[in-house]
Design a binder for these strands. Structure first.
Length: 266
DNA sequence: ATGGTAGGCCTCCTA
């Protein structure tokens, strides 16, 4: 079985690329983030024509997460228990469309779009840390309930866990994605039993999953590794390979993130 | 030279 995670940065702007990529990469399941769609505008029909079932969670033009599968799609859950809400000042906080779970081919797949944080000290940064802590608490509970569960926490974590995961750590001094609290929150997921299964197969220097559209960052390979597949122990032992589909970042109309693909036994 | 790109409900917000 082959599953993937990909921040598509608008699924409607990239439907043709998504369909072509599915046919080329032959993934069985892909978790999408930043669909920037509502359930009504998600291109479920076009994906169905390729043989994929879909679940989508989107409530506005922002955020939005989906799971696309040709190996079953059961027990869909929108959001996780304790997922924090966020709202601009003087508005009612809302739980955003940033988490979607479904069981596909015997694996509990989570499509996660961790809040960006915007700037250190911004309310959105505190929201990011609270969101990650709530995720850790819930995800630790899933494993406590069933230590043999095959669970994958996949998506855009908006954290570069080590200095090697950014093209120039000095350029990020004082910015989000590299701060100690964010990195501690990421490590806490590992401590809870969820292992980054992609890095062992993609550990060459300057290996990234995201490149900003500006300043020829992709052409200069000035990127960040911020998209991950964190797997429970029982799932991690089944992993036989992983890769970052850097080619999908090339050319006109690419997302600013590359898909991350994991191969498992069975 | 303090910019630049790309998405969205598009002259502002989000990333």
């Amino acid at each position: 079985m082959r599953f993937a995670t990909w921040n598509v940065n608008s699924v409607r702007a990239r439907t043709d690329r998504l369909l072509a990529w599915l046919q080329r990469s032959e993934v069985d399941v892909v978790a999408l983030q930043e669909t920037k769609s509502t359930d009504a505008t998600f291109p479920a029909t076009a994906l169905s024509a390729l043989g994929y079932e879909t679940a989508h969670h989107g409530v506005s033009q922002w955020n939005g997460v989906a799971i696309v599968s040709r190996v079953g799609l059961d027990d869909v859950q929108r959001g996780f228990a304790g997922q924090p809400a966020f709202g601009a000042p003087d508005t009612t906080p809302a739980v955003e469309a940033r988490a979607l779970g479904a069981t596909c081919g015997g694996v509990r797949i989570w499509s996660l779009y961790v809040p960006h944080g915007r700037a250190v000290g911004d309310p959105h940064y505190d929201y990011k840390l609270a969101w990650l802590e709530a995720l850790r608490t819930d995800a630790a509970g899933w494993l406590a309930a069933d230590p043999q569960a095959r669970i994958a926490l996949t998506g855009d974590f908006n954290i570069a866990p080590t200095d090697a995961d950014v093209y120039d750590v000095a350029a990020f001094e004082g910015h989000t994605h590299i701060t100690a609290p964010e990195r501690a929150a990421f490590r806490a997921l590992d401590d809870a039993g969820y292992r980054d299964v992609v890095r062992p197969f993609t550990d060459a220097p300057r290996t990234y999953t995201y490149w900003d559209y500006q300043q020829l960052r992709f052409q200069k390979n000035r990127g960040m590794r911020i998209d991950f597949a964190l797997c429970s122990p029982a799932l991690a032992t089944a992993v036989t390979g992983a890769r970052i589909d850097r080619d999908e970042r090339k050319g006109k109309g690419a997302s600013d993130h590359a898909p991350v693909i994991v191969e498992i036994d069975s």
